[in-house]
Design a protein around this nucleic acid. Structure first.
Length: 471
DNA sequence: ATGTCC
């Protein structure tokens, strides 16, 4: 009796690829159990109708694999007759951002989209892009910094202290001593947080590997447009459980650090590998199916990164506020790079917001301006056309490269002085001229959010990019 | 965004 070889399995109708490996691993036991000829006959039956053999004592793993592969193949990209609809809230959107938004709506699983007023070009979906899909999640529609988010804490510090040398020095020292910036930043004296005990850190080998570095980076801010700053919060009317008035507030902007970047990179690469047939302009919009391990894993790890990024902000605020021995009177926080899931008519709906603030009716959020322009505390109006969303900031007016070429600190310093902003450190590519006019962006979204407070930055720390504001 | 290609 000759052995069953790859050629026999292929002849039985099992395609080359992962299913072949699964078949080979089932063969020895099956031959022992059924004999060579019957085993081969069963292989042919399973290849023809795998869904009837999902509980087969010998070939269940193969049958399951074939069913999954068939489902996967059925979902291959097919150009649809017309793209899904979207609403554009960005009057001055660059052509690149519009093209990316339109491309995302060509995906088979896309149901609708919205482009926020601060939109600009990104990878895959534009920054400021909102995309709703059914049954899929798109790593590049969440973004590279998974769960990048805002956190505002209102403090019981006298607002006049922002202009009093003594208090001002204390605030400055709190930022200098209790925050850490830079791509590889680790906290000097390590923090801990219950987010580090989450079971999902062992969900995959990748997550398991990332846990230690994530622990070291807990409570750090990273680089780019991330910041920790003190400013003056003005509430024209009582809200957030506070009286109308002026307050000192701490505002931070950062995400899930190296861990999130690795997870984003891993799953966007995997998604692209799974969709080799996509036209190249859609490659960075490759999706993962939610009824496959890949999509489920990505969602779980994205949510873990949400908890982790939230924990980073919590540690930052705890340390800075603790340094001042101050009390937190109120707070607002929100993700702006994230995918939110819900159920609709029995189908799993995913709203991706990539640089967009969730703005369901009554939902609070923070929309920052720039180091020298105000940010706003907002309450969502829940406009369906915007998919319950708003902008996540002013949006870049120019690329980092262009900003570095066009500006130096001599040009920027007068604006900082005029606005009463003390900048501890930052890269010149983050200067206020590199951003759109936040007032214009807010004016473009009066339908989407109510402004309940204004935050004027006064002491700002960002990642040092080598050059200094004094230079 | 990230020690910036596992």
């Amino acid at each position: 009796m000759s052995k069953i070889r790859g050629g026999d399995i292929r002849a039985a109708g099992i395609p080359d690829g992962p299913a072949m490996g699964v078949a080979l691993s089932c063969i020895p036991k099956a031959v022992k159990h059924l004999g060579r000829d019957v085993a081969l006959q069963r292989l042919a039956e399973i290849a023809a109708a795998p869904d009837r053999s999902l509980d087969d004592p010998d070939f269940a793993p193969l049958a399951q694999r074939l069913v999954e592969d068939a489902r996967e193949a059925a979902r291959r990209f097919v150009e649809r007759d017309a793209p899904a609809p979207y609403v554009n809230y960005c009057g001055d959107a660059d052509p690149g951002a519009l093209e990316q938004m339109r491309n995302s709506l060509r995906l088979p699983s896309a149901t609708r989209g919205a482009l926020m007023p601060d939109a600009h070009r990104g990878y895959g979906l534009p920054i400021g892009g909102v995309l709703e899909t059914e049954g899929t999640v798109i790593p590049y529609a969440v973004g590279v910094d998974i769960a990048c988010r805002m956190k505002l804490s209102v403090l019981d510090v006298d607002p006049d202290g922002l202009d009093a040398p003594g208090t001002r020095e204390q605030l400055k020292q709190a930022l200098l001593k209790q925050t850490q910036f830079g791509t590889g930043a680790k906290l000097r004296n390590r923090a801990d947080h219950e987010a580090m005990d989450d079971d999902r850190w062992t969900l995959t080998p990748l997550a398991t590997r990332l846990r230690d570095r994530a622990r070291e980076q807990l409570g750090t801010s990273g680089s780019g447009n991330h910041f920790v700053e003190f400013g003056l919060l003005t509430l024209p009317e009582a809200d957030l459980g506070l009286e109308a008035g002026r307050y000192v507030a701490l505002l931070s902007h950062s995400g899930s650090r190296g861990a999130g970047a690795q997870i984003a990179g891993h799953y966007s690469k995997l998604a692209r590998e799974l969709r080799p047939e996509l036209p190249k302009e859609l490659s960075y919009l490759s999706w993962l199916d939610l009824d496959h391990d890949s999509g489920r894993e990505y969602l779980e790890l994205m949510r873990l990164m949400g908890e982790y990024a939230s924990a980073c902000h919590a540690v930052i605020h705890e340390r800075v506020v603790g340094h001042l021995k101050a009390e937190v009177l109120a707070g607002v926080e929100n993700h702006h790079n994230y995918a939110w899931t819900s159920e609709r008519d029995g189908r799993e709906v995913v709203v991706h917001r990539k640089g967009a603030t969730p703005a369901a009716e009554g939902e609070l959020g923070v929309i920052p301006g720039s180091m020298a322009a105000p940010g706003f505390v907002v309450r969502g109006k829940g406009r369906p056309e915007s998919i319950d969303s708003a902008s996540h900031g002013a949006g870049r007016r120019m690329s980092r490269k262009a900003a570095t070429q066009q500006f130096n600190w001599q040009m920027v310093r007068p604006v900082l002085e005029e606005r009463g902003v003390e900048l501890l450190s930052a890269g010149i590519d983050e200067n206020p001229f590199a951003y759109k006019d936040i007032e214009a962006v807010m004016a473009a979204q009066t339908d989407l959010v109510d402004v309940i407070g204004r935050f004027d930055p006064r002491i700002v720390r960002m990642a040092d990019a080598g050059e200094r504001p004094e230079d």
